[in-house]
Design a protein around this nucleic acid. Structure first.
Lengths: 208, 208, 208, 208
DNA sequence: AGCTAATCGAGACGGTACGTCGAGTCTTGGA
DNA sequence: TCCAAGACTCGACGTACCGTCTCGATTAGCT
């Protein structure tokens, strides 16, 4: 989430960067996303909201996309978790609804697809998205599978490589389906849809 | 796909619009997408490539997004079909690979997510995407299901409403998973992934 | 005074440049010079005052210096003339006072030295200054000498080359002395100073 | 010429200012003027050249103009003198050529007019220029007149007030004419021009 | 065959945001 | 207290696109 990763040789001279500015900028970015959306969000506006000069933004982030990835990544960390609901089906339904709720938020709605679109032409941005959002949320799949295996709903994996491939597949199916439903089909993800989707997925997983 | 929608009162006087211009513009748009991607594509550049004045673009399309949707929609129509491969699993694998190949093209890669992102704040654009791309490709799901039912792989649907809901669900799952794998996870969709995904989906559909 | 010299092949296509914009910009430049002075005058501010986009300025002038030269040159044309006062001494006194009054105006005071300073590193700018201001005002020297010769105050010139050199010398002496008195010594040029200066110069010219 | 003016209460506590820094900064300023000219000279660049922090500059000078005035004033002191050449005409020619040579140096060429331009809106700067440059060089006029009077070329002055006025006038004429010839007309001041100018001035002074 | 009216290329127009640069100030740690 | 380093706020820069407009010059189809 922090903009600059921990440098091995932390600089010792000069005025240190203000951590308050970091916070103010990310907060301002989220606020601007809510009010204006990705398209009308400008670096100048974010700087003004944060009470910070534009140069201070550019000292930390290379551009709008990088900034927004960091600002949005925090929301994913905060709002996605996997509470134990007693069954694989229920766990999936739960996380699907959480994810859908997150995607309905004005901060994430446009921004997520926009940065993904950008990332198709920008390797550094793609890595940033992967590190800040995608890989961090794969934990949900791993945890859910563990629980299902502990409950005896799913068999234990023998081959670790195929287990990893399988987790990636499930992640793409869950995240992709919810995103497509929400943003492309532009239909709401309600409890009913979540139930039907989870039923389909669980049936697939158990009978693979 | 037609640029100018059917006008209720087709004008009868004055110089008619050049159909060559239409073609040149859409071709130029695709070429610009390949070279520059969505982000760096500009209306002025497209006009220059097409050997056309900017006015001519704006007389036909309201903006960049609308133009790109039309330019890209044509590719979907051309490159997606459902050849009968003998089994539901094989049919799904086939269409998944076709769709993945389409998404790997530089024209579509950036553009698709970008216009979807735009559409979250622009209802008219969302409808255009739905009409020009999404709804047109749902035929693939309907056709695939029919075939599977004809083969006896899937039971016939009794309730037409739930049948429609089910088709939408499958469409979101297939399209969403492939898009997510390709653009977000940024991993290739090869025959292996297609097989595993199709296996999961077929297992789910048969045991629902 | 016009920004672009008369092109031999005047373009015939595209929207023609607005002559109103030209006028509005030059007026706004002079107004901004009065209020803000050279140092605080900005292109953006001039554009705003003129009710014009910044690009419209840059389409006509390469930068602040070029713009100000044109804006100021008009003042020289308007406010410098050589009324016949009956004697060489009186004519010189008159033009010195006119020139001093011009240099006391807030539009010219800072701007003139500033663009001259710039021009020492910018050949194009130097030529612009020469063409728009310096060479145009040399007419005053030529006219004054003619009158003095007609009156019999000065002998006729035999060698045209030395006559030209002499006119240049006189121009540098008159203009340079007034500028130095006004801007470097920062003392006022009143009737008294004008009389003493003119007396010195006339004595020199008559006894050369 | 001293950078920090004589402070009434010289501080006695804390680390004393480095005199090496003073020299390094002024040298760096002149070097930057040569390479970049006034317009592109920046405080940060001067600091970097001098191997000094920007803070150190601002502790000694209020800004770019003040710094440059001090850096340039030293050159005037070094390069202007009045060697006795035996006649008023020859003395004037000599000082004119010295002054012209000084104005041709890249350090002074741009800088002098630029700070004069600034000074028209900044009284403190005008006083600094007067004290550091203008008034110091008036000695040349006074000395030259004394010598001419001693030689019997010019009559002694009776009224001290009019003598002072007369010296100021001569100073403005000499300095102004050379500056105008060099920077505005942008023509070289060679021996020929110097001779013609001096002849004009001497004729004027003797026949006033 | 001439009228009429919408089209065409060209390019200037008012805007808005961009990302950079320089000015001058402030905040570190260290001498 | 000074110093080097470098982050800070502020404001202007000159550029790039947007989508609109104004030109003169083509084209049709309708009289």
């Amino acid at each position: 989430m922090s903009s600059a990763a921990s440098s091995p040789a932390p600089r010792r001279t000069g005025r240190p960067r203000s951590p308050e500015a970091d916070r103010a900028i990310l907060d301002a970015t989220r606020a601007a996303l809510v009010e204006l959306g990705w398209g009308k969000l400008t670096m100048g506006d974010v700087a003004a909201r944060a009470g910070v000069a534009k140069t201070t933004l550019y000292r930390r982030w290379a551009g709008k996309s990088e900034l927004v990835v960091d600002a949005v990544a925090a929301l994913f960390d905060e709002h996605l978790e996997l509470p134990d609901r007693g069954s694989l089906q229920a766990d999936i339904e739960g996380v699907v609804l959480q994810f859908a709720a997150l995607l309905e938020r004005p901060e994430t709605k446009t921004a997520l697809m926009a940065v993904v679109a950008e990332s198709t032409r920008d390797d550094a941005l793609r890595e940033r998205i992967r590190g800040a959002i995608v890989d961090r949320q794969k934990r949900l799949v791993l945890l859910g599978r563990e629980r299902a295996q502990a409950r005896g709903e799913l068999p234990g994996e023998e081959d670790p490589a195929s287990a990893a491939r399988n987790a990636d597949l499930i992640f793409d199916v869950v995240a992709g389906s919810v995103v497509h439903r929400t943003l492309v089909s532009a239909e709401p993800v309600g409890p009913e849809w979540a139930r039907e989707f989870a039923a389909l997925l669980v049936a697939g997983l158990k009978n693979l």
